[in-house]
Nucleic acid binder design. Structure first.
Lengths: 123, 123
DNA sequence: ACCAAAAGTAGTAATAATTCCTATTTTTAT
DNA sequence: ATAAAAATAGGAATTATTACTACTTTTGGT
């Protein structure tokens, strides 16, 4: 993977997010910094970075993919009321143990919990 | 949820699949049985059925959602080479234990493993 | 069985999300 | 300095999904 200024900018901008933006949301911020950056470049790099394990791709919230710069191992909670993604620490979850290593080489995994967050429950 | 012939047909057709089709793939089969069924109806019902826990929505393979009629608890393996979804039984995985029940009411969860399947490894 | 309200649908339009394409630019290794 | 490889910009094209509206079906009460 050769260096590219654009990829650096994309990664750097993603890191400024506390939430987990999708490509469109991220594009707005990236575009503020570099008017010439293209959507193709954004998508290409987000997918590349995710494949390399430098960022995480989160699916399941809506029809778009969301991205997480946090590579420290953790899982995700999706509130189906307010449509927000919350992080959940590994420590509160038992690590899945697979007996399938011979059949499938696991490179990454995510656990996505769906439900209602505290805030929405109290409404 | 009122009865609808179309929803029955969609569910019945999904159950004929061993693999995990996306809406488009399913539409082809459903459309063979009922020429008048619309995409809107398909999407509406797939999402409804998934929300009710009657079927499972699987995200993460590509930009489309895939669906699984198998409600028996299990997780998923996605091969990033051949782009196929494999089922993995609960028995081979420790059930995630959450300490967050007070903060988040979990309604469902899925574990998505990504990696290379045996077949693709042997190539 | 009849009927009104509620729920659901068909068909199509619109939007959103993502990928593809090509000429140009940048990076990298020599 | 330079050529090959990798990456980008910009826009077109495609794919996936949702929205809209008039019409049809379901349901529960009579």
């Amino acid at each position: 993977m050769n260096y590219s200024r654009q990829r650096e900018l994309i990664l750097e901008t993603l890191k400024e997010y506390a939430i987990h933006p999708n490509a469109e949301e991220l594009y707005i911020k990236v575009h503020e910094k570099d008017k010439n950056i293209s959507k193709g470049t954004l998508y290409r790099n987000l997918n590349r970075l995710a494949k390399e394990g430098i960022i995480k791709k989160i699916d399941g919230l809506d029809s778009s993919s969301h991205f997480d710069h946090n590579i420290h191992e953790h899982y995700h909670l999706i509130c189906t009321k307010c449509n927000r993604i919350f992080d959940i620490e590994k420590e509160t979850t038992q690590i899945p143990q697979l007996n399938i290593e011979n059949d499938f080489k696991v490179l990454s995994y995510d656990i996505i919990f769906k439900g209602i967050c505290k805030e929405c429950s109290n409404k």
